[in-house]
Structure formats: C-alpha cells, structure tokens
Design a protein around this nucleic acid. Structure first.
Length: 455
RNA sequence: GAGGGCGUAGCUCAGUAGGUUAGAGCGACAGUUUGUGGCACUGUAGGCCGUGGGUUCGAGACCCAUCGUUCUCCCCA
C-alpha cells in the first residue's frame, strides 16, 4: 500500500465546501417542503434487475454492480464460473452480481411506489435528496458519485403539476441567486414531427439527430438523417422545424403551421401553451424558453420535458425532468402517471463557485476561543465556556497550555472572531479579558456578565 | 468506448540542447518574543523526480509500457 488515494470520480469535501453544499441542499429542501412535498429515502443499493434495462443500453453499462459475497464457496464453483463466462460476454449474471448502486432517484422511486401504492395517498408528492453513482468517465461537471434532488408527483395527470414543478425551479434558483433558463419542450411535439415526416417508429432516430444540432450543426444532422433513411422532403420539414425562432409565442405559431392538424403535435402545443400562460400570470414565464430541439435521453418521458441551463456558464444542464405516463408498470403496477424534476447539486455548486455567487455568510465557525493558560485557569475557563454553550454560543477551549502566539494563530486560522483570556490575574478577580480579533478591541468582563456580553 | 494534456517537497510550480550534491515561492515546525496574534528576520524538517523497462559513459529530461490524473467526443446531472 503506497500513498492513499480516492476512487476515480469521487471527492472529499472540506469544511468550507460542506457548508456551501449544505446551503444548496437546505435551499432546495425548504422549497420542496414549501410546495407540499414529503421526504423519501431509499437504499444506496438496489437489486440489479430493478435497475437493468431502465436507462437504455448506454445506461446499463454505467451502472455500478456489486460483487456477490461467497463466490469462493466450493459448492457454488460451477455456477460462479458459468456466471463469469456470461460476464465476459458482456451479459450480467446474478451468480456474480445481484445488487447494484443506485443510478438515479426516479427508478427507485417508481419501485417504491409500485411496492407501496396501496398505502400511499394520491397524488403522492415526494422529494428525495441522495447520492447516485455512475461508472462514467469523469470530467468537468461529471462525477462518479454525485447528488440529485428530485421532486415527483405521481397519481395525477393535471398540468397544474407541471406548472408547480416549474415554479419550484424558478423559486429555488432565485433563492440561490443563480440566473437560469428553463427550456421546455413536449415529447408529443417530437412525436408529431416524427409522424409528419416518416412515421413514429423513427422518433428515436429523429430526436437523437435533433438533439445534436447545436453541437454538430445542421449539415451533419442532415447527413445523419440521410443515413437513417429520411427522404429529401422529410429532411426539409426537419430543417424548417429546427429553424423555428423568435419569442415563445412566435415559435409556437410557426410550429402550429408546420405540424398542421397532426393530433399529437396539436396536443403537445396545447399543453405547452397552458403552462406558459399560467406562468405569464405568476410572472415566472420570463425564465421559460420553448425549445423544440430539446429531447432528453431517457425514454420513459411522454409529455412535457424540462431542462435547466445556467446562464453564462460552461456547464451542461443543472437540472431536468418531465412527464412519464406509466413508469410503475415497469414494476407491475400500471396506470400511475407522474411528472418530476431533478436538481444536479454538484453542478450547481461548480457554477456558483465559478461565478462566486455563494453568500459569504454561510461559513459558520466557532464564535469564541478560550485561551488555555494553566490547569486552574483552564478549569475556570471551561466553566465559563459551558455557560456560553448553554446560550447556544459556539465556543471551544484550546486543549493545551501553550504560548499566546500559538493560541492566537489557531483562532486566526479557524476565523474565530473572539478570544477570552483567563489567566491567574483574571482568575483572582473573577473576570476575564475579551478581545475581538477583527477590531482589536479588548475589554475586561466579570464572569457573571460574560454570557450577556456575547448574546 | 475513442482521442489529447499532465505526473518533480504538504501545495503551486521551475529545472534551459541529456552532464557534478535536485530548486523557488507558499505552507509546516522552531527561535528572535514565557500575558497579546496578523508583519518582519533567522533557522529546521520535508523528494525511490508516479511505477517498470529501454537508449546512453551518464536520464528528472529521450523512447516504450503501465498506473494515476485532467480535458474533449459519446452520453449525461
């Protein structure tokens, strides 16, 4: 064993970082609770078959699998070797691994709802703030262990839920003082486009190509469409679709014309208009951007979809979500529609830190340091400190009798504002010397008055 | 899965075209200063130059491999 190290893509968080992260968590949690959501926690690990096949082929590869215990049991050698054979062929085997780390919060939530739907009150509104793990290759804004903060509503088809979730985004990011754009689209609009040009079986090919527009440009998208068998006429429609621009209203009008009387398309547009109109009234619409190129990878989305982008920041999306009609049917319980959103705390942290938007009040620390100047002195100091602690004043005593120099430096490094000196003279007088380190002001306070002095 | 950058002291990095004993700043520790910090000065500790192989009289430097890290693409929060 040489130098200690961390697994790839994981991090330690020091005091300052934890406090800033807590600030984000608390902000989001309080918004969730204000909107009537209740907490849920699920285990770090799930059965592998709960997770497999839910995130697409790519997603399956990124699930962290947990090696079974007892593989060295001689009675199981044959099964284990057969299982290992399957693994080397890229399949999974319960003989080798039957559990895996949580990949997101939505699927465990769906599993929970499927298991407990008899006991839940619908519409069920839950929030969940927990880490998830992905065996992705780490890079900027991408980690192997990161937190998600999810809010979902299941058991209601009302668009009022979508309206509410958008309001959560707006409220939370305003409290974090982070300027964002919330992009909205509707899977039904994408479905409508697919039907208008080429049939719905090509919807996935189409959305993947569209999603790449701002990265690879129209020429390459056209090339990809060509390869997937879209005709010149169909490519023309896609081109018009992607060229839609202007204000939200202008975009919607252009889209209406383009999709004509396609049923899915019109329904999708209606839903979008409903949500936008609602937030015209709340004043939150200024953060909303209709973006018909927004696709979102996860296939379970069926209605409105959202993605949050921090303005003026080199960072992927910091939140996303959408409506899914029937997620729990994956676990044998059909007909529970839902809609949810997620916040990516680690990316939000990176953006806030990069733009220096954290308030400087959030780093809390010890308020008072008692100097240690000897056995009897320390004992007296300890009693005074206990009194202050009972008044909820954060304080500590330097554990060793040391030179002033050292104790002062300790206070400085921990950014402790006040020191209390109780030496032999003070002890005899039943008083102490209190010094404020930032102003340099010093005063003599009787023991009995000390608590009042700080409160 | 594909492709780049970088690994030298606790940290940030120098180290010229291969050439004696491996360098700086910051930090740590000690002293100047045994009841008043931040400053200053002085001193001390701390390095298998990521690892393994190769080229060479000679490698921190060049070549190969490997591990780690970081960034980009894919995909995502």
């Amino acid at each position: 064993m040489s130098k200690p190290s961390l697994p790839q893509g994981t991090r330690d968080f020091n005091a300052a970082t934890v406090q800033k992260r807590q600030f984000i968590f608390q902000t989001i949690r309080s918004v969730f609770e204000t909107f009537g959501f209740q907490p849920l926690e699920t285990p770090a690990m799930e059965n592998l078959d709960t997770l497999m096949g839910k995130y697409g082929e790519e997603g399956d590869k990124l699930i962290f699998k947990i090696l079974n215990n007892g593989l060295d049991n001689p009675a199981k050698t044959e099964q284990v070797e057969a299982g290992f054979e399957k693994i080397t062929q890229g399949k999974s085997s319960t003989a080798i691994t039957e559990r895996a780390l949580r990949y997101d919060l939505t699927i465990p939530f769906a599993r929970y709802v499927a298991m407990n739907h008899g006991a839940l009150t619908f519409p069920y509104k839950r929030y969940q703030i927990q880490p998830v793990w992905r065996a992705d290759r780490p890079q900027k804004g991408r980690y192997r262990e990161f937190y998600q903060c999810d809010a979902d509503i299941v058991g209601s088809e009302s668009l009022l839920n979508e309206v509410d979730l958008i309001a959560i985004y707006v409220t939370a990011f305003e409290k974090l003082q982070l300027p964002v754009a919330i992009k909205i689209n509707n899977r039904k609009i994408l479905m409508g486009l697919a039907q208008v040009c080429g049939g719905e079986d090509k919807m996935i090919d189409l959305t993947i190509a569209i999603d790449k527009l701002d990265k690879i440009g129209w020429e390459k998208v056209k090339e990809e469409l060509n390869n997937k068998g879209f005709s010149e006429h169909q490519q023309n429609i896609v081109s018009q679709y992607l060229n839609i621009s202007g204000t939200n209203d202008e975009k919607i009008n252009q889209l209406k014309t383009l999709l004509g009387d396609n049923e899915n398309g019109q329904k999708g547009i209606e839903e979008l208009i409903f949500v936008l109109a609602y937030h015209e009234a709340t004043g939150m619409a200024k953060h909303l951007v209709a973006d018909f190129t927004l696709a979102r990878g996860l296939n379970y989305y069926t209605g409105l979809i959202f993605e949050v982008k921090a303005l003026d920041a080199q960072m992927g999306s910091i939140g996303g979500g959408g409506r899914y009609n029937d997620l729990t049917s994956l676990f044998g319980v059909p007909n529970i529609p839902g809609v949810g959103i997620s916040f990516g705390v680690d990316r939000i942290y990176d953006v806030l830190e990069g733009k220096q938007l954290f308030p400087n009040t959030i780093e809390s620390t010890t308020q008072v340091l008692f100097f240690n100047l000897g056995e009897a002195e320390a004992k007296a100091a300890y009693l005074q400190m206990t009194t202050l602690r009972n008044k909820k004043i954060a304080c500590e005593i330097y554990p060793e009798k040391s030179k002033f120099d050292k104790q002062f430096k300790y206070a400085e490094k921990k950014n402790i504002q006040n020191i209390v000196i109780i030496g032999s003279e003070e002890l005899a007088q039943q008083q102490c010397t209190v010094k404020n380190l930032s102003t340099g002001n010093q005063s003599t306070i009787a023991f009995a008055e000390l608590a009042n002095f700080f409160s």
